[in-house]
Amino acid sequence: MTLLTVSGIRKSFGAVDVLHGVDFSVGAGEVLGLVGDNGAGKSTLMKIVTGMYKADAGDVVLGGTSVLDLSPGERRAKGIEMIYQDLALAKQQDVAANIFLGREPVRRVFGVNFVDRTKMKQDAQAMITRLGANLPAINRPVGSFSGGQQQSVAIARALTFNPKVVIMDEPTAALAVREVQGVLDLIRQLRDQGIGVILISHRLNDVLSVTDRIVVLHHGRAAANLVTKETTMTDVVSAIVGGGDMAEAAAHEAQG
């Protein structure tokens, strides 16, 4: 069952043509890998899905209805969550404030809605514990955390509100070996819960081990759409760099 369908997406920044007609889809309980060279347009494509960027053409359909006219907030409410490559955290605010940013629980006192800090902290702590993230203190500004710890906060924010589709843009870039395995396990859990996951990563080993399908962006198009089970490292690498004999590069990747 397809959950999210992206079709004919075009996008240019001024004179720079980044995407010219990208199509792909993700099903519920499916993990899709999105790979491509630096600057291939992966992050741009995903920001179009979340509404941060406006596409020049094309459509983004979630569960049968187009979300193109919705704001980023409305798309989040519909269940599209993304962990951004730069994490997009408010560095001077604490963990709870970041996880609940834009969706703070409120308590009504004398007809006025006040943010329910107690509930926020409890729920944030529960989420952090569930993720097994290793944070020094939940009430500290996230800017004082290490890169990996900040990444955990960004992941927690994306998972707290029962998302339908979770887009992860390099979620393991700053993580140590054990934490990387943790994120890969998490992706499998999400899949088992019927959530659609889009994983952007340059660690092709991880992509091959956790995804069901792999879409390769090349020259602004979805150049390949591979079923992971029937795909080798060589296939992926050659699609990324655009054909030719890539056995050597693939062998190098496989070692790494």
């Binding site: 409305e74 989040r76 730069d86 997009a88 940013l101 969706r103 809605n113």
Partner: peptide, 23 residues
């Protein structure tokens, strides 16, 4: 103590964080 106030601080902290959060 209100969402309006918290969003005010978040916008000043990181406009990008606020935008991606749907503010």
């Amino acid at each position: 103590y209100t969402r309006y106030g918290r969003h005010t601080l978040a916008i000043g902290d990181s406009e990008n964080a606020a935008r991606t959060s749907g503010i």
